[in-house]
Design a protein around this nucleic acid. Structure first.
Lengths: 236, 236
DNA sequence: CGAATGGTTGATGGAACTCAACATCGGTGG
DNA sequence: CCACCGATGTTGAGTTCCATCAACCATTCG
């Protein structure tokens, strides 16, 4: 199977054969498995490798000294994590596995090399960065100005499109392995309130969530509730 | 006067003479003045120019259909706005002037050209992107997990460092031209509550705010309250 | 100089948090 | 295979932080 990053990319741009091959090769080096709840990159890690998520879900998060935790991004299969070298002494956040994870570790030198050799790859990396930035802005806007139920609805709309872009949605159903405590940290709430809000969404007939799988029962309704505008999703 | 972007950059890396000259030239083309409350880039603008903020403050914001507004980033003098070409049909957010503004409009072609000719400039652009991303993550974490007073304190710590990096801080005092309604949209609160929180910060002897100028009276105290960790600020 | 915008303060309400208890699930080892 | 245990999910009661509503100043700007 080709990797999902390629699949996502090629929905939008046609890559030259050589570039596709180079990207494919990159993803086949240094496959690593990480257990759920383990960190790929710690808060105190210095400059580190890039990662391509092959399977499973991860998150970027920030741990505060008093124990509070904020999940600032979800990383899904096909996502490319930190394509550009980060020159900081100390990372400003960590990357952790939410589920069991399969990733390709990518050496910064190999990425630089590939980007230099293939302009199309450089363009992909740049697009991934711009996509991450736009996504991050939307998350900021969401926690700032959306209500609890809107935030949850919005996240589900976003996941629906992002997962569809890598072919992981069938019949408006997709994997949703994020626990309620994790959802809470991602949406800036408490797990108790997440639970009540989920109940509301179910009661409204908008979603169904069982056994780590989510089915969207009423997509238009969910989008309307979430004030969802897909303009910020580059790859979807 | 050299532009502030250059000043900020050269605090960290020494640029080759040719690169510095090229960056300087870029910033001297197409100077534009924008009145406060005007948009530089609208929500429905397609691919657009990049901008270098020469003087005044701007913000990225997202306007929701029902009137709510979220300010997702503050753009200060010396900030480079969208160095990389954005290929979206429709922007996912707008850029507006918070004060009267002087900017250099930069043609995407000229930027591409400069980046290709000078690796040091390419590195600068990349760094600016990474800095914007890290900043955006910190804002997401903040609105998600910091209390009202912590958020305000954190913003002031951030502005202190960012403005210091371009030489706009003297005696722990710097310009703070953002109105309380704007602060509210940036921190995900209401202007009424911003007002009360400011009062608290003043009462605690941490800051002084008069006539659009902010003085930090107790920086360690403010940092402690904000759980401030500067790791995310690339240029400061 | 008057109108609009921004700032300040009080009273009241509500969305989301906290605390607490219990149910359920999933994995692990006896 | 089942018993156990920790992690996750669920629900209720009480509380808190921040929003809302509503005035009223202060400032700025046309």
């Amino acid at each position: 199977m080709d990797n999902l990053f390629l699949r996502k990319v090629e929905r939008q741009v046609r890559l030259p054969e050589a570039a596709r091959a180079a990207l494919g090769d990159l993803a086949r080096q240094q496959i690593r498995h990480v257990a759920a709840r383990q960190d790929l990159v710690g808060h105190d890690t210095g400059p580190h490798h890039a990662h391509l998520i092959l399977d499973g879900w991860a998150c970027r998060y920030r741990q505060f000294p008093d124990g509070r935790r904020a999940i600032v991004a979800l990383l899904l299969p096909g996502d490319l994590c930190d394509p550009y070298r980060v020159h900081r002494i100390r990372a400003d956040h960590a990357v952790g596995a939410l589920t069991a994870l399969t990733v390709a570790r990518l050496a910064p030198e190999a990425l630089d090399e590939a980007a230099r050799a293939h302009p199309a790859i450089e363009a992909c990396f740049r697009r991934e960065m711009l996509a991450a930035l736009a996504l991050q802005r939307e998350w900021t806007a969401g926690v700032g100005r959306r209500s609890a139920i809107e935030r949850l609805a919005h996240l589900f709309c976003e996941l629906h499109l992002r997962l569809a872009a890598v072919g992981l949605v069938a019949d408006a159903t997709f994997p949703m392995p994020v626990t309620q405590p994790d959802l809470a940290d991602a949406l800036g709430q408490t797990s108790v309130h997440i639970n009540r809000t989920l109940r509301e969404l179910r009661a409204a007939g908008l979603i169904e969530l069982r056994g780590r799988r989510l089915t969207i029962r009423d997509l238009p309704g969910l989008k309307a509730l979430a004030l969802f505008d897909p303009a910020y999703l580059y790859w979807a």
